[in-house]
Amino acid sequence: MVKRKYVVPGDLIVEGDLRASTNTFKTGNRIYSLRVGLAEIGNGSVRVIPLSGTYIPRVGDVVVGEVIDISAFAWQLDINSCFYGYLTAQSVFGRGYSPSKYNLSNKFKIGDLLLAKIQSFDRTRDPMLSISGPGLGPIERGVVIKVNAMKVPRLIGKKGSMIRLIESATKCKVILGQNGVIVVSGEPDGVSKAIEIIRLVESKAHLAELNRMVKELIDSWGVRDADR
């Protein structure tokens, strides 16, 4: 049984022999929150799901980035974070890459959008990206919107339920970067609806009845469409 609690930084979440997980800290046996968010107490540990904050890369995250600079060896991407992401030419062209043979801007230009994976990142180095993997690579079409990266887990939903719901209700394709950059493509009406749902989820991410609210929104369109 998981217990939930609203918290702000410095709030005592719980006292006891529990593990202090993400966005918490422990002194003695008291566990405090580091963030504004939703504390979850259960399964022997305590964590806080934050409701605000800048995207901090994690290895394995899939992000949407925009090419902002090109050097002889790498593309520099804005990944909606305090760190730039780098996609090396070698990771795209292979070991045989040589700056004399290839021109990077023939492949991706400044302004191009890429879906990429965070390959490596630590305290001392900027995040390195990779586009090898299913679904990764250039994004050709769609409308780009940004949400707070901390709300992305609610947009994905349990085992991807929310994103599937949005896609099926709007007949759109939604590419969701864990950095809070989202690309929606499909019919104009569907895109508008998808964005409306995404904004609703973003603003009500802290509420338990989020799923019901989304379904109500979708149902209200269903009625309208049926009237036509």
Partner: peptide, 11 residues
């Protein structure tokens, strides 16, 4: 700072 989501031990 709390609104910006910076990790902080206390207000």
């Amino acid at each position: 700072l709390a609104d910006a989501g910076i990790n902080m031990r206390d207000l």
